[in-house]
Amino acid sequence: MTKILLVDDEEMIREVLQAYFEKEGWDIISASNGIEALKREKENKLDLIVLDLMLPDISGEEVCRLIRKESEVPIIMLTAKSAEDDVINGIVIGADDYVTKPFSPREVVVRVQAILRRVKKTKMSNLFIFNDRELIIDPFKKEVVLRDQIITLTPIEYKLLFTIANYPGRVYSRADLLENVQEDGSYFEGYERSIDTHIKNLRKKIETNSRHPEYILTVFGMGYKFGGKPYAKDVAF
């Protein structure tokens, strides 16, 4: 179900928009100030945020900036400001759309629908699909689905899989892979062999037989490569 965070300090606006949104079948979480909005955003996996700029504690602009440091969730801003500079500033700091008050609730619904359609289309076109949809990697959700089941990976395991799946057939040395998974971009030669341990654990999770892998292949004396066969991305789900 589509989950939307609705942020506005005016209770009537929240109630009206929530009623319209729920008619669309969307799951609504509401917040009346910026601090509460940031808390709700961290607690939930959101599909979209409708954010008022004039909040009583911290501004909507600041809320947007803080969210954009960690997330690409679509944001529609609600505001009484209509000057061109204000609109441009909203887009520059990360908003996907801008609705000026007073507005029609139906207009907001239509704008939400348009963004959700665009995001869905983008997500579908960016899925990594292999072996007749046996393995699917979703870069937006950072999820891996194997035979219709979500596989729980550690952050390093996910980064390793995502890295080599980007270019099936390309050979990655241990140093290449280590550089890609290091959080701070640092590199320590002595840690190269730790990649083998992570690869071993990853194989246990995604391979039918980890001793005879189909996806993560060893290239002796060189490193690893991805053996999955890419699936057409334009196939309807």
Rank of each mutant, 00 (worst) to 15 (best):
L177K: 11
T79M: 03
P102F: 04
T79L: 02
S30L: 00
G34I: 00
I156H: 06
R106L: 14
N180E: 11
N209Q: 08
T218W: 02
E24I: 13
K225E: 10
L78Y: 01
L66W: 02
K233A: 08
D8W: 02
E24P: 03
E157Y: 08
D97M: 00
Y187H: 14
A175C: 04
E11N: 15
N201M: 06
A232L: 09
G228A: 11
Q149W: 08
Y187A: 05
G190F: 06
L160C: 12
V144C: 06
I216M: 05
A236W: 09
D184N: 15
L5T: 10
N201H: 12
R174T: 06
F21T: 09
K45H: 13
I129E: 00
I195D: 08
S125V: 11
T2Q: 01
R68G: 05
D47C: 04
D52M: 07
M1V: 13
F226E: 06
K229T: 14
P213E: 01
D176I: 01
T122C: 03
F220H: 11
Y191T: 11
K225G: 01
K101P: 04
N44I: 07
R174W: 07
P155T: 13
A37V: 03
F162K: 09
L116S: 04
K3N: 09
I195A: 01
G90H: 12
G34T: 02
D97W: 00
E41P: 00
E36M: 01
F237M: 07
L160S: 12
N33S: 07
D138N: 15
T100E: 07
I137R: 09
N180F: 10
K121H: 10
Y20A: 12
Q18S: 15
G94D: 01
L153P: 09
E179T: 15
P56I: 09
K45A: 15
I93Y: 06
Q18H: 02
F103Q: 04
G169K: 05
Y98R: 05
V73D: 01
L5S: 07
S173N: 11
G228S: 05
L127Q: 09
R65M: 08
R14H: 06
V112L: 00
D196C: 03
K200T: 07
E84F: 13
L217I: 14
E183P: 11
K159E: 10
A95H: 08
L160F: 14
I88S: 04
D57L: 00
E61I: 15
Y167M: 07
Y98S: 05
L177I: 14
I28S: 05
V109L: 12
R117T: 12
L6K: 01
I129V: 14
V171E: 04
N131T: 11
M12S: 15
M12W: 09
L48C: 10
G94I: 11
I58V: 13
V181E: 00
V144W: 06
S82T: 12
L46E: 03
I49P: 03
K45V: 12
N89V: 07
H198L: 04
Y191Q: 08
N89A: 15
V110G: 05
V145K: 11
D9T: 04
Y167V: 15
S71I: 03
W26F: 14
T163Y: 02
R193E: 10
E107V: 14
T208Q: 08
I216A: 03
I129Q: 12
K142E: 10
G221R: 10
K200F: 08
D148L: 04
R40E: 05
M1Q: 09
E15K: 15
V145C: 05
